[in-house]
Design a protein around this nucleic acid. Structure first.
Length: 395
DNA sequence: TTTCTGTATAAAT
DNA sequence: TATACAGAAA
């Protein structure tokens, strides 16, 4: 979702850029946004589990556009959900499910237009879809990494540590994450708009001189972000004015307590957590080949850091980063693929025509749970309660 | 003046 | 899904 209204606010420091200007540079790509766009041309197939590669082709077309201009892409995939966002994720999953049900109803009623609309809203860019693309990337020798948690944090890590020259994304969150250079809205012709952190001082609409990175981040959080809802009647403009005047979020909140605006319980505590999620979220360090914090946490920190994404054993996070292990279920893809093959064979042996294969990501077999528990080192129940395990079922 | 809400539309071919 | 725009509400 990002920070609503942030990009329009910064439009005076947004500059058009073309792919030619990126020659010989390395860019991190928010690949889920490509997969989402690519999925539009084949939403029905993806929903029904019918074979298609249009979404993969779309991504590879974009990859080749970059390669043809001698730009080196690193494709960054989303990984697991942060505990803080699990509610939102389940809501989205429910909405997709409802859209799928409507799509099937419309289809049965012969209303293919309405059905198609619902299918498009029902598409889930699942880890399996990412896995399919990754198989192509391996063959084509394209760099990629699956983040342990959010791709945004992973791309910010690459940018902050100078492992890439720019990040290509649609998500304004990369700005509060502290990414140095971002290219938004890059189209199939390689044209987009460039944002550079260093240009912030020159913004006309609103004056950011004297603003620190932390102030910019706090402004974004006050205006409402994925990790914390804004207080009623506080948007970007008011958030800007408050941070400019009071300099720190503690002082802003102290001031707000003297106004008629109601501050929900734990707001200040949750605000701190939101700051930390932007600054210290867990990401994959491909040099250390291990899970690290986006930026180091203070040594004297004694708070529970689970909200930054639970820590993962090195072997597991490596498996996730390479795309061999499902980041949501922590189950190696080989198991799922074996299961799908098994069911396919069962179908072809006793049926006359292609029966669509639905992959239901809400259940799993005992053997897979056992294996993944061994990998994660958690109890059966802990994994079960996290849900989202996989089994192939036949429609 | 700013924020909030709803509606339309584009994305892909 | 995300953005843009319009009009209402505060």
């Amino acid at each position: 979702m990002g920070i609503q209204g942030l990009l329009p606010l910064l439009k005076t420091v947004m500059a058009p850029i073309t792919i030619e200007e990126l020659r010989d540079q390395t860019v991190a790509i928010d690949v889920y946004s490509w997969l989402h766009k690519g999925a539009f041309s084949c939403s029905i197939e993806l929903c029904k589990g019918l074979p298609t590669s249009r979404h993969i082709d779309y991504c590879m077309h974009r990859v080749n556009l970059l390669r043809n201009h001698s730009v080196k892409p690193i494709l960054v995939f989303d990984g697991g959900s942060l505990p803080m966002k699990i509610d939102k994720e389940t809501k989205r999953a429910r909405a997709r499910k409802e859209n799928l049900e409507w799509a099937l109803k419309h289809e049965a009623a012969g209303n293919s237009f309405a059905a198609h609309e619902c299918f498009q809203k029902a598409v889930d860019i699942s880890p399996s879809i990412a896995w399919e693309l990754i198989q192509v990337l391996k063959k084509e020798n394209i760099d990629y990494v699956v983040a342990p948690y959010e791709a945004d944090a992973q791309m910010a890590f690459l940018s902050i540590n100078k492992l890439v020259d720019a990040v290509i994304t649609e998500d304004s969150d990369l700005i509060p994450f502290g990414c140095h250079r971002i290219i938004f809205k890059m189209d199939k012709f390689g044209q987009g708009v460039e944002f550079k952190c260093s240009m912030l001082d020159k913004n006309k609409d609103i004056d950011f001189t004297g603003f620190t990175k932390t102030m910019l981040l706090e402004m974004c959080i006050f205006s409402g972000c994925d990790y914390l809802q804004s207080l009623p009647s506080i948007g970007l403009k008011r958030a800007y004015a408050l941070v400019k005047k009071y300099k720190s979020y503690e002082k802003v909140i102290k001031h707000l307590r003297c106004t008629s605006i109601a501050i929900p319980p734990h707001y200040e505590e949750n605000f701190k957590k939101a700051i930390w999620t932007f600054q210290h979220q867990r990401v994959y360090d491909s040099v250390k080949e291990d899970i690290v914090h986006l930026s180091n946490i203070p040594h004297d920190c004694d708070i529970d850091l689970e909200f930054l994404g639970p820590w993962l054993p090195q072997k597991l996070v490596q498996g996730i980063a390479k795309g061999d292990v499902d980041p949501l279920t922590k189950i190696p893809f080989q198991f799922k693929m074996a299961a799908i093959k098994r069911y396919r064979n069962m179908e072809s042996s006793n049926d006359e025509q292609n029966i669509p294969l639905m992959v239901d990501e809400s259940q799993e077999t005992e053997a897979h749970i056992q294996h993944s528990n061994a990998m994660v080192g958690t109890s059966n129940n802990a994994l079960r309660s996290e849900g989202q395990i996989i089994v192939a079922t036949v429609m």
